[in-house]
């Protein structure tokens, strides 16, 4: 059922997956400031993660309702055929995404928490 070389292949796949997962986790370690919604590659809007809100997107490709609650965002409703976007866990860290492929809609977390705070106040 297995040959020796198979385990070489399995090890190689695991190593590549783990290394890229670590790199991505490092890139996504900071809490984000807001979410950016893009549809079919074009900008739709940006919404702050610090306030609870509901965003209804009703475009030609379909309807999506994104909810921001306690600093994280999730897909609450979608009328796409597969509903995979509603299976995603809530996102809050910089770089995390929720994708609704049939509607070509991407929700991504952008900006870091620090960016919202003022460094100095010039008198």
């Amino acid at each position: 059922m297995f040959r020796k070389k198979d385990f070489l292949l399995i090890t190689a796949i695991i190593v590549i997956a783990v290394v890229s997962a670590i790199l991505i986790a490092l890139a996504q370690s900071e809490a984000g400031a807001m979410i950016r919604i893009t549809i079919d590659g074009t900008f739709y809007g940006e919404y702050s993660l610090s306030e609870n809100q509901t965003i209804s997107v009703d475009e030609t490709l379909g309807y999506n309702r994104i909810v921001i609650e306690n600093g994280s965002a999730y897909m609450a409703e979608a009328d796409c055929p597969d509903k995979y976007c509603m299976d995603y866990l809530p996102i809050a860290k910089n770089g995390e995404t929720i994708i609704c492929l049939p509607h070509k809609l991407v929700v991504e977390v952008v900006g870091t928490q620090d960016a919202r705070q003022l460094d100095v106040v010039v008198p």
Partner: peptide, 15 residues
């Protein structure tokens, strides 16, 4: 979707 960020699913999809 014209968004490279999706490539972040690469490790999960590989596994």
């Amino acid at each position: 979707v014209q968004n490279l960020k999706i490539a972040f699913y690469f490790p999960a999809l590989m596994m």
